[in-house]
Design a protein around this nucleic acid. Sequence first.
DNA 1: TCGCCGAATGAATCGCGATTCAGTCACCCC
DNA 2: GGGGTGACTGAATCGCGATTCATTCGGCGA
Lengths: 212, 212
Amino acid sequence: MAEARATEGDKRERILQAAIRVFAKKGFYATKVSEIAKAASVADGTIYLYFQNKEAILVSVFDDRMKALLALLERISSSQRTSEEKVQRIMELQLGLLEEERDLAEVVTVNLRQSSTFLKQYAAPLFRRYLELMADVVAAGQRDGSFRKDLNPRVVARSLFGGLDGIALTWALGAEPPEEPSPVLLRKAASQFSALFLAGLRAGAELGAEAK
Amino acid sequence: MAEARATEGDKRERILQAAIRVFAKKGFYATKVSEIAKAASVADGTIYLYFQNKEAILVSVFDDRMKALLALLERISSSQRTSEEKVQRIMELQLGLLEEERDLAEVVTVNLRQSSTFLKQYAAPLFRRYLELMADVVAAGQRDGSFRKDLNPRVVARSLFGGLDGIALTWALGAEPPEEPSPVLLRKAASQFSALFLAGLRAGAELGAEAK
DNA sequence: TCGCCGAATGAATCGCGATTCAGTCACCCC
DNA sequence: GGGGTGACTGAATCGCGATTCATTCGGCGA
């Protein structure tokens, strides 16, 4: 058969997908390897053919996905758009990721904090890189005169990231488990955040501010 | 002796303090009850005289501290200050908490996400209340004309919380483990965030914004 | 001084799951 | 068709800690 053989070379991928799902639902420590196995329709032992151990699964999730995300960010950063448009794009990228792959996003952000030293050591650099790319876009906007110049681009990037993350967090937390969070609400929140953030960032906003 | 008897009625308190410290350093799941006991200079079994089990310790941390934090927020909210000043205060409160009790803050925010269902169920309401109080302040500012009226106060509150949280996160993550994060950097970041956020929020900012 | 009581101790227990590994199975080459 | 190969399986192992509980300890009233 052409596809009943879901067993192709995608077994590793199946395991990763399953892991994302389960980690998101129960958290890293609370999920049993056997649960991931069940979710992936694979035997417990099979997992160890593809991953060193439980933690390695988590690391792979970061690695595979974060790198893809970073690539997208780089694309945006080096595109031909306006600085302001780029920032918009970044917002859409981060929130869009959430909407489509909420589980993944949850795993990535939650575990970035959870941090079992090793993991922290591993994830932090990727995260920093993400922030740096954001900061670059902001800095470019300051150079071309779109954005006020009295703010440190890195701080702006952190605020941007954090704000988006906060919206996402409360969005995910907001709906009681039975019901799914509504994408509509997320979009609405996103557009308001965008209005708030860009208004604060736009050149000219420094008037009257205690920018120190 | 007057104080060698650290064994007073504060044993429970000692355990909580120790737990905050250890949870922050290693995360809830990775810390052994025996480690908390050691950190509190107490026998393993003693912990069970004061807490049902390991999870109950975490819940107590939330309960005791979050309630205190909420009380402070309420005080600010009902104070006589300008809306803008209130927002400033809130920022200071949240970041100040971080600076003074970084461990506690880490435990609270990290575990809010970590969430083992029960915990999520328990913590989420407190967190929502925190956001609601913030939103009230914003709404009041809109009513008195200090803030632009085209943004949903709850969304603004989330952005505010998230932005602060993001700054704190990267601040804590930024310094390599050996060195302590510098309070100076945090303050600087905070003042910039404040400038950015308030500029975006101020009445009049809606000009030219795609606030939809 | 003596016996009692509750608080505190920490060594032993016990269950839970991550990991292992002895087989099984499907497929392919000779 | 027969045997070899390697992916896959899942039951058994094994270590780790949360929790328990028999025992100790310190103070206090008689």
